[in-house]
């Protein structure tokens, strides 16, 4: 499961596809203090990245993938 929405934490793992952008956006709107766990995330579709950037969601755990981390850091998401 690429997107696992819990009460306060959303776990993003593997490849998070464009289809997951809307559910994530809805969850973040409904859960303003919700945090993201990207530890097992390998790739985010650009649409998902936009959702994270636009909502300014807090990333609780950064990806272990260093390349993805670099991209997220450059956008100020981390």
């Amino acid at each position: 499961m690429a997107l696992d929405l819990k009460k306060t934490v959303a776990n993003l793992s593997g490849t998070v596809t464009v289809q997951e952008a809307e559910p994530l956006l809805e969850w973040l709107q409904a859960t303003p203090k919700g945090k993201l766990n990207l530890a097992d995330c390998e790739h985010l579709h650009a649409a998902v990245l936009q959702v994270i950037l636009r909502t300014g969601a807090t990333i609780q755990k950064e990806p272990t993938d260093p390349d993805l981390t670099t991209w997220l850091k450059s956008a100020g998401a981390l």
């Binding site: 464009v18 579709h45 650009a46 390349d67």
Partner: peptide, 8 residues
């Protein structure tokens, strides 16, 4: 397209 994937 997934522009992030293309760029990455």
């Amino acid at each position: 397209d997934d522009p992030l994937l293309t760029a990455r």
